[in-house]
């Protein structure tokens, strides 16, 4: 059942984007913090991890949004064609 311009699957993927941003940043910081503890270099790897996590998260949000936008346009075109 289509909900607005999106299908159920697309809604679910869009709803996941926020969590993906949060998790990627958290994992980046944790990985950096672990490396810092290992190499005794606090805070450099933590900062690098935070930046890398943020970059990865933003990349996922932007690509996810672009994919959703394309899917919405395709769904609307299909609707028009059906009419």
């Amino acid at each position: 059942m289509p909900l607005g311009p999106f299908t159920k699957q697309e809604h679910l993927e869009i709803a996941t984007l926020g969590l993906q941003l949060a998790v990627s940043q958290t994992l980046g910081v944790l990985a950096g913090w672990w490396l810092d503890r290992h190499f005794n270099s606090l805070p450099w790897f933590t900062l690098l991890g935070a930046a890398a996590g943020f970059a990865a998260g933003m990349y996922m949000v932007v690509t996810g949004a672009r994919k959703a936008q394309a899917a919405a346009a395709e769904n609307l075109n299909n609707k028009k064609a059906d009419k």
Partner: peptide, 17 residues
């Protein structure tokens, strides 16, 4: 690497949710 990390994070998000 960003795409590979994306896949890993997607799997992590499954567990965390």
């Amino acid at each position: 690497p960003l795409e590979v990390i994306s896949l890993i994070i997607k799997v992590c998000v499954l567990a965390l949710r």
